[in-house]
């Protein structure tokens, strides 16, 4: 029991990261709504950012600023990496939302199931149109 408490106490940050990661990944896979999928992706990415931030912490470390009372500093490199990764995440979200807006304009829905149904309808229509064209032309010939 002590072991478990100790484990939770010391690895607390990583447990939160894994919890968030699973929520994000599950939402992305299980949700049929395009916007909810993007939200899931965002949660998933943010969990990874937290993972980087958590690993940058050094015991008794202070913020990485030159300061007379500081003896040991946190590692600033992962923070910088994550700034870049946040930019990437924001632009991914922007592209995804732009795509969703266009999908909504074309299909008038953002539910994956109804989009698939409409796509199947499209295909059937195009096959029918082709057959009709063929018949018309053979009649003409």
């Amino acid at each position: 029991m002590i072991d478990v408490i100790h484990f939770i106490q010391t690895k607390f940050y990583y447990l939160v990261v894994i919890f968030l990661m699973m929520i994000g990944l599950y939402t992305t896979i299980a949700s049929r709504n395009l916007i909810k999928k993007v939200i899931g992706i965002n949660i998933f990415q943010i969990s990874v950012f937290l993972f980087y931030i958590a690993m940058a912490k050094v015991k008794h470390g202070t913020a990485p600023i030159l300061w007379d009372k500081a003896v040991i500093y946190d590692n600033p490199l992962p923070h910088v990496l994550i700034l870049t990764a946040i930019v990437v995440s924001v632009s991914t979200t922007a592209v995804a939302l732009a795509l969703i807006i266009n999908i909504y304009k074309e299909y008038e829905t953002i539910e994956e199931d109804s989009i698939l149904a409409k796509q199947e309808l499209d295909e059937e229509e195009s096959i029918l149109a082709k057959q009709k064209l063929d018949i018309d032309r053979s009649n003409m010939a």
Binding site: L25, V48, F51, L99, I100, N102, I103, E106, Q119
Partner: peptide
């Protein structure tokens, strides 16, 4: 218009892949 949905699916899978690489 199918291209939009294809691109969206690629985006979701591609982002998951990139995040795995980040981990």
């Amino acid at each position: 218009r199918e291209a939009l949905v294809a691109s969206y699916n690629y985006l979701i899978l591609g982002t998951i892949a990139a995040t795995f690489i980040l981990i």
